[in-house]
Write a protein that binds this DNA or RNA. Structure first.
Lengths: 173, 173
DNA sequence: CTCCGTTATGTGACATGACAACAATAAGGT
DNA sequence: ACCTTATTGTTGTCATGTCACATAACGGAG
């Protein structure tokens, strides 16, 4: 092993800014959601795809694929949300192992009340500072970085991006 | 308040990719560190600035400023690291409130063993997929997004609305 | 010097999330 | 049918991180 390819000062600065942005943006959005609607970012991430599904119901497996979470994380989060009356679990017809996750009336009310202000926050903090040209550049290296990640741990997390095309709409979290 | 500025399909796709990248990159790096050196990302984040300071000592306040963490988070993490023998706490000369955080021998060994492989991972996953031009573009909007975040804590009206929301995910037009 | 607002750090309670081990069911080969 | 393997979810455990609050010491105004 030779000398590692240390970061240049410029690279170190960018890396530090990236990590700061990641932390602060995440925090700002969680706070905005909690303050304006009493939901956590995790709640919103799950309520959004559920609210977009035809009947407000998704199979556990489908929801996991949609949000790209590990199963245990999803299961824990659903347990917490079930306790708060946001979703319910039902048996899955045709597969006794499966679980259907259903949005409750309360859950739908919550996401619908939360969405406008949350979208506004995403715009203000993320898209408004971007020019259209920059957004394309951004998408380009998001794609390349995600591709680089695929090779990293071959069998670990469920891969969300490569599957179906994104539906028109909004799924923050 | 009128209709929210919902995300376009392109924006929604970029936003989803960004969140996926944030999650997967963070996870990949934590795993790389844990596997190769037994340190967590939080450990590394604190050991790095400590190891770069002249004596391997920083005042709590300086360390907090350096990494940008909340005080309580830093305090908790230092307690855990102290238990594992990575750092020690000492009194601060000249200010009885202060705490000096000192890297132990074990802590220095750990960060020095971890650094080469970690830097290599950062390169592979973050910088290698970027062209030099893209890196400058990236830095530009990192700066602008960070600036947008600064204004956030100041002005934000409490949740006055509860007005009826459009279906989350439904994009008008 | 005393009062008092500010600054510096610590703590407890709780939500979140990763990992590994488990239970149950489905699927597939022989 | 039988045995083996893969899929689906769930759970325990532990590290992390946030919030609200507690504590102590500094520093300036009177």
């Amino acid at each position: 092993m030779g000398e590692p390819r240390w970061l240049t000062p410029e690279e170190a600065a960018v890396w530090k800014k990236y990590r700061t942005l990641r932390r602060e943006l995440h925090l700002a959005q969680d706070r905005q959601l909690a303050r304006d609607s009493g939901l956590s970012g995790a709640d919103y991430a799950l309520l959004a795809p559920l609210s977009e599904s035809p009947e407000g119901v998704l199979r556990f497996r489908e929801l996991a694929l949609e949000v790209g979470w590990e199963r245990s994380r999803l299961s824990h989060q659903l347990t917490r949300m079930e306790k708060r009356g946001l979703v319910t679990r039902e048996a899955c017809p045709g597969d006794a192992r499966g679980a259907m996750i259903r949005l409750t009336r309360h859950g739908r009310d919550a996401i619908e009340a939360a969405a406008p202000q949350h979208v506004e926050a995403v715009r203000r903090l993320f898209f408004d500072p971007l020019t259209p040209g920059e957004m394309r550049v951004l998408e380009g290296f998001l794609d390349r970085m995600l591709a680089a990640l695929e090779g990293e741990s071959a069998a670990h997390p469920p891969n969300t991006s490569a599957g179906k095309a994104a539906r028109p709409g909004f799924r923050p979290g």
